[in-house]
Simulated scan of single mutants.
Amino acid sequence: MTMYRMVGLAACLAAALPAFALDQSDYRFNGFGTAAVTRLGGEADGRSYGMQGQTNDSWRGDELSKLGGQFQYGITDSLDITAQVIAQAEHDSWEANLEWLYASLQATDRLVLRGGRLRNPVYMYSETLDVGFTYPWLRLPDEVYHQVQISNYEGLDAIYTLPLSYGSVSLQANAGKALNRDYFLYDTVADMDYRKIAGANLSLATNAFGTVRLSYSEADLTLDGLLDGQKGKFTSLGYQFDNGTWLTANEATRLVMEGPVASKNAFYLMGGRRFGNFLPHLTYAQLDEEKGGGRQVSWTYGLNYSLLPNVTLKGEYKRVDTSSEGEGVFVKTGAEYYREQVLKGSFGIPAPTYDGDIVSVGIDFVF
């Protein structure tokens, strides 16, 4: 790996990952952001797409663009406090939110205890979810990353890291709750309560063969008119590798919900190769809904260019197709969903499928 790339990676990790103890009265500030636009075209003209429906047939920057800062202060040599604020669009309006606010105790050389508002660690890229510089895409694979809508919770976690001759193994366990969180469903916003959040993840990082990560999380879910304390369970298995020339990232997930919400299986496979400052990459992703047999598949073709050690220009084209009456990550209104169910039940008319082309262009940066 070149020194040019190592400088950018070091800055990126400082801005994104959970920071360990500083010396007393020391502090650290890092910033990160994305400036990007995206547009949905093709057969899906007039429809919206994405977790909050922010991608449509106009060039828009509110889904992908954001600006964040992270501040860490050493209260003692082993006790720190960390805060992270992110400004981004929430349901068509821009807001600045306190994403992280926690105290961390370096209990031993291997054990860190944290408490406060923490990242919900359900995905392989959860800790760097908002720091686009840490992954090759402008859009994380929607088929996987649209499923769990909360990014943080209030509670506790513990991280134990064991050094090995060929790398390290880390175990993280967490528990807490997240109340009155926005939940986007059928083009409306409702309040969701996540109670009794509990989870754990195990990560094996090797010096030469990449990193494997397995995680599990569950919570009791309450959503007016749909869920009343039903259990939701989420499992993720991921692998990533980057030797400075070749890279790959792969993740498979399963979401199981008690009640009327369909369980989902999803995965993506990504590979890329660097040619100097250029990085072309290719991703295949798939989402399957067990209830009704809906499926979404996509191919993403991306090209990145490293403008500076801490600034990357990215462009992507994503082709999305749905089948078997599944809407995938496309957005329906409640009226559309109801009308389709009536037509299917009364006349046997299947729900429509959706297809589209998503183009995204932007810059990821850290400082």
Rank of each mutant, 00 (worst) to 15 (best):
A252D: 02
N265F: 13
V256I: 12
D288S: 09
Q296G: 02
G259W: 10
T253V: 15
R295S: 12
R295N: 10
T253I: 15
K264S: 07
G293R: 08
G259S: 06
R274C: 05
R295L: 14
A285L: 09
L287W: 09
T283P: 00
V261D: 07
L255R: 03
R274T: 02
E290P: 05
Y284G: 12
F278K: 00
G271N: 06
T283G: 06
R295K: 07
L279C: 03
Q286D: 11
D288C: 10
G259Q: 03
A252V: 11
G271P: 02
K291S: 13
G272H: 02
T283I: 13
F278E: 01
A252I: 14
E258Q: 02
N265C: 09
E251L: 11
L269H: 14
P260S: 05
M270V: 12
A252T: 08
R274Q: 03
E258L: 08
T253G: 03
K291A: 15
Y284E: 08
R274M: 10
K291N: 11
A285M: 05
G292N: 03
T253D: 06
Y268C: 04
A285T: 00
R254H: 07
G259V: 08
L282C: 02
Q286T: 12
V256L: 13
K264D: 10
A252R: 03
K291M: 15
N277S: 14
L287G: 01
E251R: 03
V256H: 08
K291T: 13
E258R: 05
A266G: 04
G292V: 12
P260M: 10
N277A: 15
G259L: 10
M270H: 04
E289T: 06
A249M: 15
G272P: 01
N277Q: 14
N277G: 12
G276S: 02
E251K: 00
A266E: 04
D288H: 06
P260G: 02
L279S: 01
N277K: 10
M270G: 04
Y284Q: 11
R254E: 09
S263L: 09
H281S: 04
R273V: 04
M270D: 04
N250F: 13
V261H: 10
D288K: 13
G272L: 01
